[in-house]
């Protein structure tokens, strides 16, 4: 990490962060990272914001979303369900 006091260990740690936040990292490496994080504020921010990044995408993915009307129209036509769709819309 540039502009950062303990550069070598920061960069070594970053390579394992993805597995660390997933809880998939070996216990020994986890402890090393946790130890490093105690004394390195910048790395704590990187870990927290990496977690947050994944969390934001997961949240967006879990939300319902509607198909654009024109895409829906063509999909039902392709599936030969368009008469049924018109019926559903009018009822």
């Amino acid at each position: 990490m540039k502009n950062h006091n303990h550069a070598p260990s920061c960069k070594q740690m970053l390579g394992n962060l993805s597995e660390f936040i997933d809880g998939d990292l070996q216990a020994e490496l986890c402890s090393e990272i946790e130890e490093h994080l105690k004394n390195c504020k910048n790395c704590r921010i990187v870990v927290d914001t990496l977690k947050k990044t994944v969390e934001l995408y997961e949240k967006c993915a879990s939300e319902e979303t509607n198909l654009p009307n024109d895409v829906r129209e063509r999909l039902f036509k392709k599936l030969a369900l368009d008469d049924l769709k018109k019926h559903q819309e009018s009822s």
Partner: peptide
């Protein structure tokens, strides 16, 4: 993996 100070937000 290069992180500069500006990336620490």
């Amino acid at each position: 993996l290069d992180i500069e100070q500006k990336d620490i937000v």
